[in-house]
């Protein structure tokens, strides 16, 4: 598990990871990339995320939190961008072990990011991207979105 400068995640975007054409997940040493195209990939992505988090040693509750966050992010891609990618990576910083989930798409982008981060779930399970919820489930949350270009959400969770 290599060290992971956080900037690199955002700046990796131009030199993007290979976009696989087949449906299988591509495994690069230390990194799993899952193409997202349909709601079946939501289940696949969160299962892979759970597996990776388990090998990293996360406890049962955290495994569910991570899987749930991945589920939300992956579904957003399916619903709003139709196609995208989930990248999962184990990371280490200052002796702490963690997991990074990057959800990226070339979809329409989010016009009003602050608003998307404010409105969340109403108790009637209302609309919205559920981003505040994802934020609550994870330790670090980052979003970059440009209308017409796409969205990248990066979240991290650290093992306590």
């Amino acid at each position: 598990m290599g060290r992971e400068p956080r900037r690199a995640v955002a700046s990796d975007r131009p030199a993007a990871a290979p976009r696989p054409e087949a449906g299988a997940a591509v495994v690069v040493p230390g990194e799993t990339s899952i193409p997202v195209r349909s709601d079946a990939d939501v289940v696949l992505a969160r299962r892979r995320g759970r597996e990776l988090a388990a090998t990293l040693g996360f406890g049962p509750t955290d495994l569910t939190l991570i899987a749930t966050a991945i589920s939300e992010l992956t579904r957003n891609i399916v619903l709003y961008a139709e196609r995208g990618q989930i990248v999962l990576k184990g990371i280490e910083r200052n002796g702490k072990v963690g997991i990074v989930v990057v959800a990226r798409d070339d979809g329409p982008g989010i016009p009003n990011v602050p608003q998307a981060l404010e409105s969340g779930f109403s108790t009637s399970g209302g609309l919205g991207l559920g981003l505040p919820g994802v934020r609550r489930l994870t330790d670090e949350f980052d979003i970059v979105s440009e209308v017409g270009r796409g969205t990248t959400v990066t979240v991290k969770k650290w093992k306590r």
Partner: peptide, 17 residues
């Protein structure tokens, strides 16, 4: 509903009340 799932749901604010 599993304990971990219940925990996660309420973290997300989904209480199914």
């Amino acid at each position: 509903i599993q304990p971990e799932v219940a925990f996660s749901m309420v973290e997300l604010g989904l209480t199914l009340e």
